[in-house]
Amino acid sequence: MSPDLRYPALSDLKATCKRRVPWFVWEYLDSATGRESVKPRNRAELDKVLFRPAILRGAIVPDLSTRFLGQDYAMPVGVAPIGMSGLIWPGAEAALAGMAQGTRLPYCLSTVATRLPEEIGPIAGDMGWFQLYPPKDPAIRADILTRAHKAGFRVLVLTVDLPGPSRRERQLRAQLAIPPKLTPAMLWQIAQRPAWALGTLRHGQPRLRLMEDYLKLDGNAPSTAHPGYLLRAAPDWDYLHAVRALWEGPLVVKGVLDPQDADPLRAAGVDAIWVSNHGGRQFDGAPPALDALRQIRATLGPEMPLIYDGGIETGLDVLRALAFGANFTMMGRGWHYALGALGAQGGSHLAQILRDDMASNMMQMGITRPEQAATQGWAPSPAPES
């Protein structure tokens, strides 16, 4: 059966992914923190953004191509970084990087990926972005950035919304640590998911390979430290300035929700601001990302490039974010739902779903370019107080 008939929407891919990956993997991918209230808040705000259909416009031929940070992309959506991506589906980083290069979408590799920048950079080619979780050792930081640059990554994304670890209660109940330590219960779950298990045998046990390169070099690390120990840094403005001085290409700061931070970031030489509440994985008390996007755009005016993530599920959601001031959008979990459902081919299928949905909705709206959504959107007024 054609994937278009069996998996016409991301929700179909998500349901199949849940059946094909071990339970502890699903809990890692799908969970947030606390009561997980951020995820429905993100969804609710997106659903409030409505568009008036256009009539009598004649034939509409949508052009989804987007130029962002000096690069041309096929549409204004890309692959956000997810740590331990190769745990979710074996070979995930290479599969998504290859998909991104083939479909001309940006792919952002995480510092805590299961593959090295030197492996993934050549696959992503000019579509490669690299996300930096801030290591506390300046020498390690400088070396990682040098390696990312030499591997061909063009854009650097500094994630700043992790001053400390989150609890992620569902992940704790699943007994999953990062890096993973297998328990008898997890081995039983793996045995029930043969496609995932065989793929993991081929690709090797998921590990934080990049940080493993540095753990043995840190003389201050305790003997029991794991590779994630090196990332326990709470970045400040001096840290940002140091990263800006080290990285010659476009620099994006990810995890911004407060409009008061916007102007100082611009003054610090940041090339784009990534508005994100980390998909609810870090702080259950965060506001919906779309509301923050609207406020930050109002603060900065029209010129500063803004990226949005937070609940994107469809091409229509992409247009909703653009209507509220984003120049580009990113999706994390969705691409991994697609891999879990269809393996290495899942990313290409999801890209086609998003492309078709964007084009269909643009025709309804009577627009030919994605950025024109900003002139078509409207959000209903809140109900009057009783």
Rank of each mutant, 00 (worst) to 15 (best):
Leu290Cys: 04
Lys216Asn: 12
Ala298Asp: 14
Val318Ser: 03
Glu248Thr: 14
Glu212Cys: 11
Tyr229Glu: 07
Leu215Cys: 01
Arg281Asp: 01
Pro305Met: 13
Ala225Asn: 13
Leu246Arg: 14
Arg207Gln: 14
Leu319His: 06
Thr299Leu: 03
Val270Ser: 02
Val275Asp: 04
His278Asp: 06
Arg209Ile: 09
Leu208Thr: 02
His278Pro: 04
Glu303Met: 09
Gly310Ala: 10
Ala262Trp: 03
Glu313Arg: 15
Leu231Asp: 09
Asn277Pro: 08
Gly315Arg: 06
Thr299Ala: 15
Val256Thr: 05
Gly269Glu: 08
Ile312Lys: 00
Gly228Tyr: 06
Val270Trp: 02
Gly269Pro: 05
Gly269Met: 10
Leu231Gly: 01
Val253Glu: 04
Val243Asn: 07
His203Asp: 13
Pro206Asp: 08
Ala233Ile: 01
Phe283Met: 11
Ala234Asn: 15
Leu319Trp: 09
Gly311Arg: 00
Ala221Ile: 06
Ile312Glu: 01
Pro287Tyr: 03
Gly249Tyr: 07
Arg266Asp: 06
Asp236Thr: 09
Pro227Gly: 08
Gly249Glu: 10
Thr314Ala: 09
Asp284Gly: 03
Ala298Ser: 15
Pro206Gly: 09
Ala323Pro: 05
Ala267Val: 11
Leu230Val: 11
Tyr229His: 15
Lys216Ile: 07
Asp291Met: 13
Ala225Thr: 11
Lys254Trp: 03
Gly280Ser: 12
Ile312Gln: 00
Asp238Cys: 08
Asn327Arg: 10
Leu217Ala: 13
Leu210Pro: 00
Gln260Asp: 14
Gln205Asp: 09
Tyr239Lys: 03
Gly279Leu: 07
Thr314Tyr: 00
Gly280Asn: 11
Tyr239Trp: 14
Pro222Ala: 08
Thr299Tyr: 02
Gly285Phe: 11
Val253Pro: 02
Asp271Val: 04
Leu246Asp: 12
Glu313Ser: 13
Leu251Phe: 04
Leu322Tyr: 10
